[in-house]
Design a protein around this nucleic acid. Sequence first.
DNA 1: CCTCCTATGTCAGCCTGCTGACATAGGAGG
DNA 2: CCTCCTATGTCAGCAGGCTGACATAGGAGG
Lengths: 148, 148
Amino acid sequence: MEQEEIVGDLDQSVGYVLKQVQASLHTAMDEVLRPLGLTVAQYACLELLGQHPGLSNSELARRAFVTRQSMNLVLRRLQERGLLTRPAHAAHGRALPTELTRAGQSTLREASVAVRAVEQQLFSPLSQAQQRRLREELAACAAAAIAN
Amino acid sequence: MEQEEIVGDLDQSVGYVLKQVQASLHTAMDEVLRPLGLTVAQYACLELLGQHPGLSNSELARRAFVTRQSMNLVLRRLQERGLLTRPAHAAHGRALPTELTRAGQSTLREASVAVRAVEQQLFSPLSQAQQRRLREELAACAAAAIAN
DNA sequence: CCTCCTATGTCAGCCTGCTGACATAGGAGG
DNA sequence: CCTCCTATGTCAGCAGGCTGACATAGGAGG
């Protein structure tokens, strides 16, 4: 229908290409997570808790790039499914430290394997060295953006 | 509150860092576009039409990484504001070729300048050569993902 | 010529994420 | 000690995006 050889200026924009790859990643992740009954946001939450047990709702939200309110809903769903536990009352401040249950850890392991495969597939056009450099350069941009 | 020096495994994931940068870009774009009364999706639509006049709803949706239904709503809003025009009836198939009005082109120019500045700022930690290589490598991944 | 098959535009309903607001807990500073 | 100030959790309301569905236009293939 369209001549794809005609390369517009948008393909010259780093931001557009970045969005393109991110969209591909999100779609691919959604496809492999759906059979496990997980959304991408829910998976992100589990992965964060797997690597940093005891994170609070707000802290999880920041690291998953969503608001506290959205993360709150994610946590509630996962808690209903028995994948994680939160104390009813805060021991010290108001922050409620969250932890994975056995079931949560099990689900996370399954999901993590699938997502890792997806990621590996997506970045397969690049060598290991290229992937590492890509990650470092993107991390530099992210760090600068936060500092700003 | 948290020791940021502690680097978890997630920061070793290209996908996570990619998401981080993309989230920063989206937030920054939203901030500069809001004063112009535009959402990120609306800007994307205008930019696509500026570079490829006559694109249909479905084609715009694909290139903006949303569904036809979502793009349809975006187009309707922009049309109400007089920023673009669509024929009431299709000349040939069912596709309705969309074009920017003078007002649309004007708004696009303003927005485009602002967004370009944001992008330049975000990727400023990288040299021109690094940015170019980054874009090419990401484009390679995107192309492979589509081919798959 | 007639029959699939695909692509497009559109409607309805749902879910998710965000903004705005509020109460509360802890710490900083006078 | 009392007063801001910040951070957190949570509730309510709203906008945006997605899935599912339908009708229609055009082309492919027998």
